[in-house]
C-alpha cells in the first residue's frame, strides 16, 4: 500500500491550534443524517425541491440592535404592579358596588350558558396536526401516531365499524381453517 494513502500515517487534522465548537464531532453524524432525511422527504416533490431555500422576508435595518425587549419586559411588570396598587385602592372604596356587579355578571353568565348549551365552537384544525381521518389512515406514518392521538380523532361510530370489521375477518379466518372449521358450539362449551 502506498504510504501516503495510509490513514494511520496521516497526521493532518489531529492536534493543532484550531478549535471546533463543543461536541462538534459527536453531533456531526446526527446532523448529517438529519440533512439527508430532509432531502429525502422532498424528493417526491420536484417543484418544491427545485426552489432555492432562503428566507424571503427582511426586518427593518438595525431592528434587532435598536429594539429593547429587556426594557419593555421590565416596564410591563412595573406597570402591572402600579395597576394592582390602584386596583386594590379602588376595590376598598367601592366594595359594595363591585360585589353587586359580580353577582349580576355571574347570574348573566349562568343564564347564557343554560340557553347556549349544545353549541359547539368552531375551531380551526382541531384534529391532530391538521390531519383528516383519511389523511391519517392513508399515511405511511400511521403506525408512528400514538393511540391517544388516534382516539381524539376516532369517534364511536368509527371504532364500532373497525371492531365489526375485525370480528368478521377473525370469523372468516376460523371458518376457512380446516382444523377449526368443524368445531361446534358444544366443543367450545357455548
Amino acid at each position: 500500500m502506498n504510504k501516503d494513502n495510509n490513514i494511520e500515517d496521516w497526521k493532518e487534522g489531529q492536534e493543532n491550534e484550531f478549535e471546533v465548537p463543543k461536541e462538534y464531532f459527536e453531533s456531526l453524524p446526527r446532523k448529517l443524517f438529519s440533512k439527508i432525511e430532509l432531502i429525502e422527504e422532498l424528493k417526491e416533490f420536484s417543484v418544491l425541491s427545485s426552489i432555492e431555500k432562503k428566507n424571503p422576508f427582511i426586518a427593518p435595518e438595525n431592528y434587532f440592535e435598536a429594539r429593547d425587549f429587556v426594557k419593555a419586559a421590565i416596564e410591563s411588570e412595573k406597570k402591572k404592579e402600579a395597576v394592582i396598587v390602584k386596583f386594590s385602592g379602588f376595590v376598598k372604596r367601592y366594595k359594595l358596588a363591585i360585589a353587586a356587579v359580580f353577582v349580576m355578571t355571574m347570574g348573566t353568565t349562568v343564564l347564557y350558558k343554560m340557553y347556549n348549551k349544545g353549541q359547539i365552537e368552531k375551531v380551526d384544525c382541531s384534529e391532530i396536526a391538521c390531519l383528516t381521518k383519511e389523511d391519517i389512515t392513508n399515511s405511511k406514518y400511521f403506525d408512528q401516531i400514538s393511540i391517544d392521538e388516534l382516539e381524539t380523532v376516532a369517534n364511536g361510530e368509527m371504532l364500532d365499524s373497525m371492531n365489526t370489521q375485525l370480528n368478521n375477518e377473525l370469523l372468516n379466518e376460523i371458518l376457512s381453517d380446516p382444523e377449526t372449521a368443524n368445531i361446534t358450539d358444544e366443543d367450545l362449551g357455548i
Binding site: 422527504e41 422532498l42 416533490f45 420536484s46 417543484v47 418544491l48 391532530i128 396536526a129 391538521c130 390531519l131 389523511d135 391519517i136 399515511s139 405511511k140 406514518y141 400511521f142 403506525d143 408512528q144 401516531i145 400514538s146 392521538e149
Partner: peptide, 25 residues
C-alpha cells in the same frame, strides 16, 4: 415544541409539502 407525536408531525409535513407542491404546479 408543538406537543405532538413525531409520527403525526411527519405525516403532517408530508401532507403540507404535497399541498404546497400541488399549489405550485
Amino acid at each position: 415544541v408543538l406537543e405532538t407525536s413525531v409520527g403525526a408531525l411527519k405525516a403532517s409535513y408530508h401532507h403540507a409539502a404535497k399541498k404546497v407542491e400541488e399549489y405550485l404546479v
